[in-house]
Design a protein around this nucleic acid. Structure first.
Length: 274
DNA sequence: GCGACAG
DNA sequence: ATCTTGTCGC
């Protein structure tokens, strides 16, 4: 029999599921921060930036880019943008070799260690631009077990996090085409954001067209210490283009860093597992 | 059994 | 994620 399917089998460690369940108990599903989110556009919210509280200013973004030559070689990027100007005020990179494969539903075990290390470096340096909130390239609650990369990073870093997906991870009956239909429907023509409600009635996140005629929406979901509505506000404020600036810059810069440092003779640091 | 499956 | 050129437009 010809059964030489090239795909190497990979068993999901039960440890992974246990850890997701365990960390999930530490999730905070409400706005848990002292700063305020200045209103998106024209819409003035009464409590925004009035009494004594400081504003959200430094928004972080993380992303990972891979070498086309060696898929195990990647560059993780942590950038921080100033919310007022959307200018990058900090960028750091980590060239690593990954030993854990990408498994749908377990993205965090592959990518989170890289980002946690970059965050830790900033924290130990008492960096003035340490992010107040982190935008993650991947989902939060919009996940088979309600605990995607954004939740995982949020709990382990104790930072408010927002998950941004560019493709929908099908869950609870939600489908890409179904969501697009809703966004195109006449009733919703005026709206640029729709809530993602699954067959069970549960709210998983939101789909938003960040650019005028974009057919592909962004999938926003809560990571940690922030409400969906607050997350949507922040994402809107960050969208200069289709993809919010913190993540877009992390993507662009990690790719550039990889190109420049992927030539031979460069020390690739191996991540030590937790 | 078959398809779906963030990055 | 990555493989990929030109093209249309400000």
């Amino acid at each position: 029999m010809m059964s030489a399917c090239g795909a190497p089998p990979f068993e999901v460690p039960s440890k992974w599921i246990q850890e997701q369940e365990s960390l999930k108990r530490r999730l905070v599903l409400e706005d848990d921060f002292t700063w305020t989110i200045s209103s998106p556009e024209g819409l003035s919210s009464p409590s925004s930036g009035l009494c004594g509280g400081h504003k959200l200013r430094y928004v972080g973004g993380v992303d990972l880019s891979f070498s086309k030559d060696d898929p195990s070689v990647a560059c993780g990027a942590l950038v921080v943008v100033d919310l007022e100007s959307l200018a990058v005020v900090h960028a750091d990179f980590s060239l690593v070799q990954l030993h854990i494969p990408y498994v749908p539903g377990f993205l965090a075990f592959r990518e989170a260690p890289v980002f946690l290390e970059l965050l830790e470096k900033m924290k130990q340096d008492s960096h003035p631009f340490y992010p107040q909130l982190l935008m993650v390239d991947g989902n939060g609650l919009l996940h088979p077990r309600g605990f995607g990369l954004a939740c995982h990073l949020g709990v382990l870093s104790n930072l408010p996090t927002v998950g941004i997906g560019k493709n929908l991870h099908h869950v609870d009956g939600l489908t890409q085409s179904g969501v697009r239909q809703l966004l195109q429907a006449q009733e919703n023509c005026t709206k640029d954001v729709i809530t993602l409600i699954g067959n069970s009635g549960r709210i998983w996140g939101a789909a938003m067209r960040s650019t005028e005629g974009s057919l592909k929406p962004l999938f926003i979901s809560t990571g940690h210490r922030i409400l969906l509505n607050s997350a949507i506000k922040v994402v809107k404020m960050c969208c200069k283009y289709h993809v919010p600036e913190p993540i877009r810059q992390a993507d662009i810069r990690s790719r550039a860093y990889l190109r420049k440092h992927s030539g031979m003779g460069n020390p690739i640091r191996t991540m030590h597992l937790l």
